[in-house]
Design a protein around this nucleic acid. Structure first.
Lengths: 202, 202
DNA sequence: TTATAATTTAACTAAATGGTTAAACCTAAC
DNA sequence: GTTAGGTTTAACCATTTAGTTAAATTATAA
């Protein structure tokens, strides 16, 4: 019977696009079916309900995100190098799916229970490891003391904010789409320099 | 007949809460009416349609935001002092309405036309002024060169991100609500130090 | 008092929407 | 060729939802 998962894949991919664009409340099952080139009956044949489909998509999106980042702080590099990789990989993820950060934050804000689905989050936010590295750097007088939560919030905020606030920033800086694309392309290097300098003592 | 604007106010305040929490797509007129302690008929009596009500609320929220920030970079202070004021005022705004940043970004992302309603945005993002100040500081060797767009994106991102990503961060750092509140309270100082240091040459 | 505006009540409409059903059709494996 | 599962069609159901209506009621200002 050769489980033909192509259709399931197609549905999930299409649903992801629609959900990313409109959120669960704004998305319509009919629209997903149309966009996938199938009919509503088949949609419910594969995914019983809108909620089930949403959860499936949400998990997939988040897993994709986590999987691309979880190994960064395990690599054999000095912390500065890990930070550089972290930044560029973060940006790389969102370049492929610019709507992803806003989607995750919004759905999470409106339904905090979704947080329960977040496994492996500690590997993307390796607080203990970072704490130790900060301590080392502080001891040799290279960095100022900083809380882990501030360290990671700053780092991630610098990476993600341009994607979360794209329409606002693009308008504020009078950029067209390709201007903004150019702006984003230079961010990785800017962030790296700025972030590391921000940590230093002098 | 004394136009009793109390009810209009009440409706707008209540609608704001509901819209901030659920977005336009997730909000229900009935829910707004109930929360305001009135009936749906009266809701439509004051605001003809959901869209009209939403636009009214959206404008109010954004205007409130702009009005609290527009004067910061006109104050008689050195740029460092202006930055300090900017940060603390930014944070102060969101402390009162934590859902506001996510609301604005999400609705703007899903309906980019709303950007047309953004007047005075240039006074919150005074690109020309900042450009000149950067140039001065670079000339005396105090700051590294940085694009205005990066300068403002970094500054605002550092302020706003903890509000945009509250559920995620709170979970990642295993904080309860009061932990997170404490985390936010120290942010202003942290950001100020970190941001200014990030700009420096050495 | 009287007229006018605010508010409630309650029923109603029309459209959108998630989800179901059953029969028919297609296709590939056996 | 038969069978089983994927797919379509098309109608249908129940519920939700924005918005309306009209009549009754309450407050308010002139």
């Amino acid at each position: 019977m050769a489980k033909d998962s192509t259709t399931e894949q197609l549905i999930a991919d299409t649903a992801e696009k629609v959900f990313l664009e409109k959120g669960i409340a704004g998305a319509r099952m009919q629209e997903i079916a149309d966009a996938a080139g199938i009919n509503k009956a088949l949609l419910h044949y594969y995914f019983r309900s809108k909620d089930k489909l949403f959860e499936y998509v949400f998990d997939r999106v988040f897993q994709d995100f986590v999987m691309r980042l979880r190994t960064v702080f395990e690599e054999e590099l000095p912390i500065e190098g890990q930070i550089r990789v972290f930044i560029s990989r973060y940006i790389q993820i969102f370049d492929r799916k610019p709507g992803m950060p806003l989607f995750i934050q919004t759905e999470l804000y409106r339904n905090p229970d979704l947080i329960k689905r977040f496994t492996f989050l500690q590997s993307v936010f390796p607080a203990d490891y970072i704490r130790k590295e900060i301590a080392k750097k502080v001891e040799v007088g290279e960095w100022r003391p900083i809380r882990v939560s501030d360290f990671l919030t700053n780092l991630i905020g610098l990476c993600v904010y341009p994607y979360l606030a794209q329409p606002l920033l693009q308008h504020a800086f009078s950029m067209n789409d390709s201007d903004y694309q150019g702006f984003l392309e230079n961010r990785a290097e800017t962030i790296y320099t700025f972030f590391l300098q921000g940590l230093r003592t002098q």
